[in-house]
């Protein structure tokens, strides 16, 4: 399945958002995820099924003004 993760194209075997995070070696409680511009809560990542062409954003705390 082809996905766009943080603006970069990825070809992955993962079928859920949680599997995608694991496959790409993301970990930690300080990550926030959105699929196709909508928030996917942490607790829903395991059930959230991805579709070909989905746009995924994985964000974390950064310096800000």
């Amino acid at each position: 399945m082809k996905l766009l993760v943080n603006g970069e194209a990825h070809e992955v075997a993962a079928t859920t958002l949680a599997e995608l995070l694991a496959a790409l070696d993301y970990e930690g409680d300080w990550l926030a995820t959105a699929v196709n511009s909508d928030l996917v809560h942490r607790v829903n990542r395991a059930e959230f099924r991805l579709s070909d062409g989905d746009r995924i954003e994985i964000l974390s705390p950064m310096q800000g003004g």
């Binding site: 993301y26 970990e27 930690g28 300080w30 990550l31 964000l59 974390s60 705390p61 950064m62 800000g64």
Partner: peptide, 21 residues
């Protein structure tokens, strides 16, 4: 104030900053 940005280091960049704050 703090922001959210794309995490490119698997969660480690955000973790470092978050623990400092």
């Amino acid at each position: 104030t703090i922001s959210l940005r794309r995490e490119m280091a698997g969660g480690r960049a955000g973790e470092k900053f978050w623990s400092l704050i």
